[in-house]
Amino acid sequence: MSADTDMGYVDGNAVIGAFTEVFGSDVSVVMLTCAACGAARRFVEAHVYDRGPGIVLRCPQCDEVTARMVRTPSEVWVDLRGVAAWRIPANVVI
């Protein structure tokens, strides 16, 4: 991959599985409201950094961290303090 296409992040599509496994419903259609700037964007639009020991989601509007997830063999640790609200369409709740 050439440097001009590597912007360091991918998008929420890459980690739908990890979050859906924890939350139990399809997170791809969930709207996240950023606690920092107030922008409401779909989960799949988040900028995702998944190179380190955990997954980091950043707001596509202001780039603040919205969510972090670290998985170990014994537990999953989720920090959602950067999200002011999750809006989940009723038809995807299981």
């Binding site: 991959m1 296409t5 360091g8 992040y9 991918v10 998008d11 599509n13 890459a14 639009e45």
Partner: peptide, 9 residues
Amino acid sequence: RTERFGPTG
């Protein structure tokens, strides 16, 4: 609608 991936994949 968009889907982005990268070498991190």
